[in-house]
């Protein structure tokens, strides 16, 4: 092999420039979008799914098919946070309607990095059962919302990218694309319109694995309740089937002092009147 100093210098230059390009590619999105996008999603998660130390809502869900036929689900939902936003939460749900599930209670321990624990109580036979909860993308009580839509998705499960900033119905929003990191998702990516002031998602679009628009979430009414901006009316629309679910929070309360003991088999079997009312 003949030694050629010029050649060597050229090689080093090429190496250097490659390094620089790699460095730039790594730094650019980090600086311009990734960090801030993730930050925005974290703040949005805190505002949307973790406000208050605890929370109670009387919820009416309307499941509406494309011919307009309605089915109603009415429930009381109680939530308590354990630790910082993004951390563990416990949910307690009591069903009022439809009549065949009245008195049923449902309890979820939600963990950020592993599967939920879920329990269901069936009053007709006084039975408490754990429910297999592997798939957080399953429909919640037959609605267009999944369990994950209700209790949230781990920020770390997606790559987040700030696409642009634009107004939505006159309110300034960040538009963020979140792409699942793993193979677990049933969608390719979702777009979120996060309002700059409240950090609440005003709209979300879910694109299926073929890149077609599948589901659309809209926050239809936002009210400030006890100091927390709250989405009190929301809709999830399945664009493919024409089915949609409208959810209304009839009453909302924050920081009502829910005790840890509520989230137990005792109260699953005997839901305390003062909490479910």
């Amino acid at each position: 092999m003949v030694y050629n100093p010029l050649q060597r210098k050229q090689i080093e230059e090429v190496k250097m420039s490659r390094f620089a390009v790699v460095l730039l590619v790594m730094l650019l999105p980090l600086q311009a979008s990734a960090v801030t996008a993730k930050d925005i999603m974290k703040r949005s998660q805190a505002a949307f799914l973790y406000p208050g130390r605890d929370f109670k809502a009387r919820v009416v869900m309307k499941l509406i098919d494309k011919s307009g036929r309605e089915r109603i689900r009415e429930l009381t939902m109680l939530r308590k946070n354990y630790g910082a936003p993004g951390g563990e939460q416990k949910y307690f749900i009591y069903f009022f309607r439809p009549a065949d599930v009245k008195g049923m209670t449902f309890m979820v321990y939600k963990y950020p990095e592993k599967d939920d624990d879920r329990w269901l109580y069936v009053p007709a036979i006084d039975m408490v059962r754990r429910i297999a909860a592997r798939d957080k993308r399953s429909s919640f009580v037959g609605s267009d919302f999944t369990y994950e839509d209700i209790s949230g998705r781990d920020i770390e499960d997606d790559n987040h990218e700030l696409l642009r900033e634009e107004p939505l119905d006159g309110r300034d929003c960040f538009v963020i694309r979140s792409t699942p990191k793993g193979e677990d998702g049933d969608y390719l990516y979702r777009l979120s319109w996060i309002e700059k002031g409240s950090f609440l998602p005003l709209k979300e679009e879910y694109y299926d694995l073929k890149g077609q628009l599948h589901r659309v979430f809209t926050a239809d009414e936002v009210k400030e309740i006890e100091g927390f901006p709250t989405v009190t009316e929301r809709t999830m629309r399945n664009v493919r089937s024409g089915h949609r679910t409208e959810v209304r929070f009839v009453t909302v309360d924050y920081d009502i002092g829910i005790k840890d003991s509520l989230f137990s088999e005792r109260f699953l079997r005997r839901p305390p009147k003062k909490w479910i009312r």
């Binding site: 754990r130 297999a132 909860a133 592997r134 798939d135 993308r137 399953s138 429909s139």
Partner: peptide, 10 residues
């Protein structure tokens, strides 16, 4: 042993 095989199938 109980397992969810896919959405709405257990």
């Amino acid at each position: 042993y109980q397992r969810q095989l896919r959405e709405d199938l257990t």
